[in-house]
Design a protein around this nucleic acid. Structure first.
Lengths: 227, 227
DNA sequence: ACAATTTTGATAGTAATGCTATTATATTTA
DNA sequence: TAAATATAATAGCATTACTATCAAAATTGT
């Protein structure tokens, strides 16, 4: 995982964009600029006009890459989950014990602690915080079925599938691996948000860790309870 | 819980509205109309102009009740959680066993199966589906701290607190009751959404039950694992 | 190196949204 | 029955979410 793998590109579903933002300098500025600006002002107040001003381009140029700000959000989240999956495959490669693999998988799926220098135009920590605060809006809408038909949520679903398979290795009889995995991923995101903004909904203090460990233990306890 | 309690009003934080919608016919039409219209077209596409047309009123009149559509969403969710809490207190009253009370509390907190004829202008089933699809947007925004300071999320936090207390009755040493409760409430909502729109993220089939039972068992397993 | 092509920037424009203001007409209450 | 209040009708304005056009710049093929 060092900078030598310079040729690596994460595959993001083509239906999300009109023109691949990885393919040009402007495209990469759109990505890095949007991560910055959405983090700063929130998705609702974010507009292509403001983004254009921030990256010294124009609204019309941005529209050539993404047909709406919602599509751009979809891109950011799809990229994020593809990145998490890639890190997860690395983190679990050649690890014998399924339980160990599960712990490592959850480690990368539930929280971001480092940045990845292979993608210099993306600040993964900032993107992670954006995912925590905004990613639900990528699917909580009326177009979800249509978007899903285009395969746009695949990277997230694949990640859930991979972790579910490890669970089934440990306990082939566990009935609800997908439900458990999506619960802990979404749960972890929400708890991080709650810790910062609605502390009465959690038991952890913002800044301190504990959330990832809590969910790791939760998963192990639950899948072993039904051995 | 029959229609005789006609004088009952659920207390909703006053900072949410400019004028209490319960206090007039127009106010009640705003509430019932917005539940209907948001369910139909989704919160993003919902506007006060469209709502005004739907309830045969005007945009300006609606603005006298709520200063924005976001405040209206806050009202609907705050009312919903106040209603759930009220039902929960009834459902657990005079039940000796803490474990039994916990199961009953989760029964009403995780899913809505009936309507409540005491509030004829509110279709609770429809409101529940709205909460599943839209309620995250009530707190996932940049104004969350400000809104929280005004006590607007109190009804939700109080509900979490009440259930947490039952958990602590069963296991006084359980370290993370709030995290567990908010995880299962949010989790249940998400799983209902996933079952309908993103089935690969869950293991239950839309329409069939199982979600509430899954989370009830999850809670009991976890709090007993650390006795 | 130069023509052809593609990408970007500059500018304009349109319909819808998110409001606020004003005045007239109902409706309630004193 | 007058006074107060609530609602309707209408207008208007700044911003948003786009689309269109055309010129300038950059890239590409030969």
């Amino acid at each position: 995982m060092d900078g030598l793998y310079a040729n690596l590109r994460l595959q993001v579903n083509e239906n999300i964009y009109l023109k691949n933002p990885e393919s040009s300098d402007l495209g990469q500025r759109i990505i890095s600029g949007s991560i910055e600006l959405i983090s700063e002002i929130g998705f609702e107040r974010f507009t292509f006009r403001k983004l254009a001003a921030a990256i010294s381009s124009t609204e019309a140029s941005i529209y050539r890459y993404f047909e709406s700000k919602h599509k751009l959000l979809l891109y950011l989240t799809a990229w994020y989950w593809a990145w998490v999956q890639y890190r997860m495959l690395f983190a679990t490669a050649n690890v014998e014990s399924a339980e160990d693999r599960l712990k490592r998988a959850l480690d990368v799926a539930l929280e971001v602690k480092e940045v990845d220098i292979q993608f210099p135009h993306i600040d993964e920590q900032k993107l992670y915080r954006l995912v925590v605060a905004e990613s639900s809006k990528a699917y909580l809408n009326k177009q979800v079925d249509e978007i899903n038909d285009q395969g746009v949520y695949t990277s997230y679903k694949d990640l859930v599938e991979l972790i579910s398979k490890i669970i089934l290795e440990i306990n082939p009889n566990y009935k609800y691996p997908h439900m458990l995995v999506s619960t802990v991923i979404e749960g972890s995101n929400h708890q991080h948000f709650f810790a910062q903004h609605l502390p009465r909904l959690t038991d952890v203090v913002c800044g301190e860790s504990g959330i990832t460990e809590y969910y790791q233990e939760m998963v192990l306890t639950l899948i072993k309870a039904e051995l």
